[in-house]
Every structure is written in structure tokens, then in C-alpha cells.
Nucleic acid binder design. Structure first.
Lengths: 115, 115
DNA sequence: ACGAATTACTTTGTCTGTCAAGGTAATTTT
DNA sequence: AAAATTACCTTGACAGACAAAGTAATTCGT
């Protein structure tokens, strides 16, 4: 897959993306990887290495917890669940995004002669 | 100044920000530094080190050119002018931003059950 | 039945952009 | 005369993203 948008434009938002999806139900790495590609119409691909790095980070910070699923068939899966702190953290990150979005819009397109 | 938004949320947009300002007239480092802080209502501060790194990068890529101003008073200033390639590049970056914005909006707030 | 593809997770090392900290030097303000 | 401001620049460190590679089981294609 050829990612349409540069990774640097997404950088810093991975945590928010993961938390948003986990908010809607427990899931595991490979599944999120697919869902993110799908949700972005394959314009963005959050690489597996990045994903698992983020999982570790989020778990250390207490925003998610993990547990092994009891697969009766197929490969074993490590599931992640969002914690209450995780939900609070998610809300903060959404606010951050809303603020950043406005500022960036102004800085990238805005003019010096106040409009 | 305490920056309101995390640097990682801005990462990757510095070039677009600089080119946008230079589009509106030649300028120099310290001036852009001030203008960016002002334009963002002091919610974001593009650090000088970052700024000068970006200047070097943009000049190497041919998107800007530099020249020393002939100050009759005050400190010497190194001015930057955007090139034609720079203007084209700027337009591309704006498009990138618009695309990234939509994708991020979906990934951060969007649901799995298509809405 | 057999090889190829897919599912699923993980580690190691590298790259890049950002920045903290520090420095230089002239000018302006107090 | 000291302090603040204007203006530029360099060095080294850090963190997040990722390429590449590996492991191992399962499922698909023929």
C-alpha cells in the first residue's frame, strides 16, 4: 500500500487514534491495523511496529490493559481494553486536536493582515 | 511562554507554515519567530533552533533563497524569499494538510459502524 | 497433499524533526 | 553602566515512526 499522507502529519496522533477505536470495543493489534487502513480509505497505514510501540506506551501509562484471548481456533491474540483513565485521556487528546487544528489552519493558510 | 499544544501535533507542518508567511513577503528568522507566536495567539511557539533548521532544509531543496539585508542600523538580518518552486511546494503542502485533516478527523473521532 | 498466502505478534536498529542549552555580537532601553 | 532586546547560529540529545527481519500457526489455492 502506498500511503497518501506523510507520516509526520500524523505523528503524535497515534495514541488518540488507538484510544478512539478501543473506546468502541476491545481489539487486538492486527485488527486495529486493518481497521485504521480501512477507515482512512487506505490513504494512511499505521505500521505494525508503530502500533505495538504505542500499545506498550499506552499500557505503561495505564490507559489500556491487555489480556490473551482464548482462541479455540486461529492464531493467539492479545486483546487490549481501554481503562477509565484511558477514556479521560482520550477526551483530552480530542480537545488537543481541535485546538491544534484551528491553530494550524491559521498558520498554514492565514495571512498577516488580520482576516 | 508555555506552549498550549504539543509539538508533536505540529510536527511536519513547519515547512508549510514558513512558506505561507514568506508567500506574503520576504522576512527573516527572528521576525517569523515572533509572527508565528503572535498568529497563534501565543498558543504555539516554533523554537528558533527548529526554525533555522527548517530554513536550511528549505534552502537546500530550492524552495527559498536567502540574502543579507543592508541594515543601516540595528543587527544584521538574513532575509529569505520564497521561490517559484517554493510556491508550488506550498500549494502541495496545503493539499496534504487538507487531506490529513479529514483523515485524522475520521480516525480520532469516527466510529467503526459507518456514520 | 503441498506450497503460498494470511493471520498475528515481536524485536532491533535507524532515521528525522524538534528542541534544550549554549554561544556570539550588536543595539536599545532603563 | 547594566539589563534587555534584537538577531543569528551550533551542538547534542530525545522521542516517535518505521524498515527489516523473525517466529509460528492457520487457511487458501490448485
Amino acid at each position: 500500500m502506498k500511503t497518501a499522507i506523510s507520516t509526520d502529519l500524523i505523528r503524535g496522533h497515534t495514541d488518540a487514534i488507538i484510544l478512539n477505536l478501543l473506546r468502541q470495543g476491545d481489539s487486538y493489534g492486527y485488527d486495529l491495523y486493518k481497521k485504521i487502513a480501512m477507515l482512512s480509505d487506505h490513504q494512511y497505514e499505521l505500521k505494525e511496529a508503530t502500533l505495538y510501540t504505542a500499545f506498550r506506551r499506552l499500557e505503561q501509562e495505564g490507559y489500556i490493559v491487555s489480556y490473551w484471548g482464548d482462541e479455540t481456533q486461529g492464531s493467539r491474540r492479545k486483546y487490549y481494553r481501554i481503562t477509565d483513565e484511558g477514556k479521560v485521556h482520550y477526551q483530552k487528546r480530542v480537545q488537543d486536536w481541535d485546538v491544534a487544528k484551528e491553530i494550524l489552519e491559521k498558520l498554514i493558510k492565514g495571512g498577516l493582515c488580520d482576516e
